[in-house]
């Protein structure tokens, strides 16, 4: 049965590979609101540079361990076009805690709560955390499942290469610059 579906889908999509490797697939487009009410539109962000999506949850230890690395990437490459978006997959039991939690970890990139699980399903998240790096052209550059301490370095290499390849000039204004930011870290930066 499965084979039938795979073959059928491959047959009809003659203008695209039958099974596109996930690392080269087109990132599903979405628009969502972050926890401060700002609109996060993937297309708009991609026009500025690469986008890094981090699917995380407050109860997930490896996710919390990964967040300082992502914050570092946001601080280092944010002005060079990178946008980091944290997508919390917490259920309603933890919705009220997501924003304070991110503030406690000194996270200043936008956090979106995936209320209806739509984003998690769109990106086929099967492990926590899952980090998806998207090229400015909209292709998925890499997907990382899980996190172990030290993996931020290789992710940074991927980001740096992508930014170098994109040729995005420094000081590209982030759509989130000057907006509400709760982290003391960002106040320090400003």
């Amino acid at each position: 049965m499965l084979l039938t579906v795979i073959l059928a889908a491959g047959f009809v999509s003659d203008s695209a590979p039958a099974a596109v490797s996930i690392s080269r697939a087109t990132a599903p487009r979405f628009t969502a609101k972050d926890v401060t009410g700002r609109t996060v539109d993937l297309d708009t962000l991609l026009a500025r540079g690469p986008v890094l999506l981090d699917f995380w949850a407050t109860w997930c230890k490896p996710c919390v361990e990964a967040m300082p690395d992502l914050q570092r990437l946001h601080a280092t490459y944010g002005e060079r076009g990178l946008t980091v978006i944290g997508i919390s997959v917490d259920g309603p039991r933890n919705h009220a805690k997501v924003r304070p939690f991110a503030t406690r970890l000194r996270i200043s990139y936008p956090i979106v709560i995936d209320h209806d699980e739509r984003l998690r399903h769109l990106y086929q998240v099967v492990a926590m955390p899952t980090v998806v790096l998207i090229e400015p052209g909209g292709r998925i550059s890499s997907v990382r499942l899980g996190y172990r301490p030290g993996e931020g370095s290789s992710l940074e290499l991927d980001v740096a290469m992508l930014i170098a390849k994109s040729g995005i000039p420094d000081s590209s204004a982030s759509p989130f610059d000057g907006e509400i930011i709760d982290s003391p870290l960002d106040r320090d930066r400003r």
Partner: peptide, 22 residues
């Protein structure tokens, strides 16, 4: 459903992807 998959028009952006948990 299977029929729906088969009848979906091909497009330049069409892609098949998936995940598996064993």
């Amino acid at each position: 459903m299977i029929l729906a998959l088969v009848l979906v028009p091909a497009s330049a952006h069409a892609q098949l992807s998936g995940s598996n948990l064993l």
